[in-house]
Simulated assay, not measured.
Amino acid sequence: MTGARGHDVPPGVDPEAAKKTLLARRAELVALSEAAADSRKAVELDQQSIGRLSRQDALQQQAMAKAQDARRAHEIRRIDAALKRLAENDYGWCVECGAAVAPRRLEIDPCAELCVACAR
């Protein structure tokens, strides 16, 4: 397979396995985000049922849930970018210098878009 940059798939890279892994991780992240939607809702001010410390705890939990959701959204964007590179046959090639990304690096992080040298 030749990509848009004129490359064949790098040796040791299995595009189908990468796609399967990326899609599974994306589905998992979307499900987690949907399951945690209630945690990100506004904390209601009800002094009779929630004391001051309980409200502070609820606000802290809400902030942590929002931060987790932001991390999930960032990871989904990375996955979507990797899926786009797969579709364009550019997966496994560094987006900066065009060198092959090490297959072991892609096993650890299927979203990796930089070779080791450019990632430094």
Rank of each mutant, 00 (worst) to 15 (best):
L59T: 03
L59F: 07
Q60K: 11
Q60R: 13
Q61N: 14
Q62W: 04
Q62S: 06
A63D: 09
A63W: 08
M64C: 05
M64N: 09
A65K: 01
A65W: 00
K66N: 12
Q68A: 11
Q68T: 06
D69N: 09
A70W: 04
A70L: 02
R71H: 09
R72M: 04
R72H: 10
R72V: 04
A73K: 07
A73W: 01
A73Y: 00
A73G: 04
H74A: 05
E75A: 06
E75Y: 02
E75I: 04
I76C: 05
R77E: 12
R77L: 10
I79R: 00
D80A: 08
D80Q: 10
A81I: 02
A82Y: 00
A82N: 03
K84D: 13
R85K: 12
R85P: 04
L86C: 00
A87H: 09
A87V: 00
A87F: 06
E88F: 12
E88N: 14
N89M: 15
N89I: 15
N89V: 15
Y91T: 00
Y91V: 01
Y91S: 04
G92Q: 09
W93V: 03
W93I: 02
W93T: 05
C94M: 06
V95S: 14
V95L: 14
V95C: 11
V95W: 09
E96V: 15
E96F: 14
C97M: 11
C97E: 12
G98A: 11
G98S: 11
A99T: 09
V101S: 03
V101F: 05
A102W: 00
A102R: 06
A102M: 09
R104T: 10
L106W: 01
I108F: 13
D109H: 09
D109Q: 11
D109T: 10
